[in-house]
Write a protein that binds this DNA or RNA. Structure first.
Lengths: 182, 182
DNA sequence: CATCGCATGTAATAGGTTACATGATTAT
DNA sequence: ATAATCATGTAACCTATTACATGCGATG
């Protein structure tokens, strides 16, 4: 049940309302996790019942700001430091990359080109955010999710880009010989 | 509904039974997708009903081997070549990495060390498989999921490893100054 | 005073995991 | 014989998405 721990982790950084947490998930979605508000609100209620978080402020339109409690911090720490069984990743983008060799070489090349461009765009976007941040480390805004996370995202998309270019080169080579190694 | 397309993609490479497809998902799980047999078998039934796959062989203990049909190939191609909306990734490993700055610097360093080692191990394992494959490209076995996929996995874990080392260096630097930039 | 964004909630449906259940073949 | 692996299926439960529903507060 990672949603619990994701919420605890977000609240450990800073207190927030369900609405804000939902927005944070929107920025996490391309890298690690996602949850919609219909999942967030009930789970916040349960976490509060369990004493892992608490309401620390009530604002304008029914807004409740939650903060992590000591018990919550302990629970989060335990989870983060526990080994964690072998990872299960769900990544439709990667799935498409893996299945691409089911296509003919022309289709594959088209797809790879598309993915190479897409990942390059993402990388460029993140590079911009990162260098803006490094120039003026404005603590709250700017970066999607903290400096470490941004660096991770940047390196991830750079990696995908390089991989796609490599794969295209492989295709070209295969073309000139025989079977294009699956 | 990506399960359908994942199954179509796997069957496009080669015909297989539900049992074999389930095993393939086990090898895909750390990179792209997963499904258990209780999901696979019913979905194969539906795909067959829709004429996207068909039974081409019946073996020993009720074993049915499926193959993709022309309609299935067309459907897969359409899906693969369609742009695909912005990716949603679910990756508990990455989630842990992102939340790590919620911890104190000592805990963070411990976690990063752990992750650096884990990703190094994975990278080494894949590097072994890849070079064995490149030496003797035995088509069916050896690689977890094809040469392109193995390369992707390898580069992914190398990237995570480098990132973890970079993050640790950042921590050290932050230590010597003030706040460790989130 | 109208529209947009903030803010929360619930219900219906779909997707996915775990547990239960069965039995045939192969290897030891 | 016995155990391990192959092979499928279903039921119960949990997780997650989409749709429905409501209303306050700020901005133009």
């Amino acid at each position: 049940v990672s949603l619990r721990h994701a919420l605890l982790g977000l609240l450990a950084r800073e207190q927030a309302s369900g609405y804000e947490l939902t927005a944070k998930f929107d920025r996490l979605r391309r890298f690690a996790w996602h949850a919609s508000h219909s999942q967030v609100y009930p789970e916040l209620g349960l976490l509060a019942l369990d004493g892992l978080i608490e309401v620390v402020d009530e604002g304008p339109r029914g807004r409740r700001t939650y903060a992590i409690t000591e018990a919550g911090t302990a629970e989060l720490r335990t989870w983060l430091l526990s080994p964690g069984d072998d990872p299960v990743v769900r990544n439709e983008f990667a799935l498409r990359l893996f299945l691409l060799s089911s296509l003919g070489p022309e289709d594959s090349r088209q797809l790879l080109t598309q993915h190479a461009e897409q990942s390059a765009r993402e990388a460029t976007r993140l590079r911009g955010l990162v260098s803006a941040h490094d120039a003026a480390p404005d603590d709250p805004p700017g970066l999607p999710f903290g400096r470490f996370a941004a660096e991770y995202g940047l390196r991830y998309y750079e990696m995908v880009h390089e991989w796609a270019r490599w794969a295209m080169a492989q295709l070209d080579e295969g073309q000139r010989e025989g079977a294009p190694g699956t």
